[in-house]
Amino acid sequence: MNPVTRIGARVIRPALDQAGYGLWLAGRTLMLLGHVPRRARALLDYMHAAGVRTAPVVVFVGFFMGMIVALQVGLELSRYGQQESIGILVAVTMAREMGPFVTSIILAASVASSMAAELGTMKVQEEITALEVMSVDVGSYLVLPRVLGLTLMAPILTLMADAVGILGGGVIAVTQLQLDFQNYLYNVREALSRVGDLVPVPSDLYAGLLKSLVFGFAIAVTGCAAGLRAKGGARGVGETTRAAVRTSVILIIVLNFFMGKLLHH
C-alpha cells in the first residue's frame, strides 16, 4: 500500500465516515424534536449538567477575557489618546467573538468530553446494545436531551460570559486607563444598541448568541456521535473522548469563521 493510499485508509476514510455519522445524527435529532415533552425531565437534567455546573468556569474565564481585551487594546488606544472608546471595543469583541468562542471552547472541553465518555462507556459495556434490543429509541432517549440541553444552554452561558467580560473590561478601564466607569458603560450601551437590519435586536449581541446556539448544537452532536461509536474498552473510550474534544474545537473554529463572514459582512 503506497503512503497516499495508507493515509486515505487510516485518516481520511474514518474522518469522513465519522463526519457522515455526525451529520446523520444531527438530522435525526432535529427530526426527534417532537419527543421533547416526554423528555422534559432529562432535558432539564442535562441543561443543569451543561449549564449550571459550567457557569462558574465561564464566568471566571469570561471576566479575565474582558480584562485581557481591555488591557491589550486599551494600552494601544491610549498611545493615540483614544482610550475613551475602549468600552465600544470590549463590548463588540465580547458580544461578537470572544463570548461565544470562549464559552464554546469551555463547553467542548467539559461537556463534549463528558458526553463522549458517558455514551462511550455505555457503548463498550453493551448498554447501548441493550437499549436497541429493548426497542428503546437511543436517539430520543439518550441523544435528544443532551443535544437540546446544550444547544439551549450555550447562548445563556454566552450571555453570562459577555456580561462579565464587559465588567472585567470596565475594571481595567477604571484601574489601568483611568476612565470613568459610567462613561465606559455608556460606550458599551451605545455599541450594543445598534439594531440589525434583518432582526430588530442588537446586531452584535444576536450574532454572537446565534453563533453560540450553532456551536452548542455542533459540540453536543460531536460528543454524542463520538460516544455512540466508541469501541475497544477503556482505551477506546479515552480515544473517543479525545477525538470528541479535538473535533469540537476544530468545528467551532471553522464554523466561527464562516458564520462571522455570513453575519458581519
Binding site: E127, T129, A130, L131, M134, V136, Y141
Partner: peptide, 23 residues
C-alpha cells in the same frame, strides 16, 4: 446479556421498568 448491560444511572426498579415505560 452476558454482562447484564444494566443502565448504570438507573436503579434496579427503573432498569426493569425501562422497556415498559419506553415501548
Amino acid at each position: 446479556f452476558q454482562h447484564s448491560a444494566l443502565i448504570n444511572w438507573l436503579n434496579v426498579f427503573e432498569n426493569m421498568a425501562l422497556p415498559l415505560r419506553e415501548t
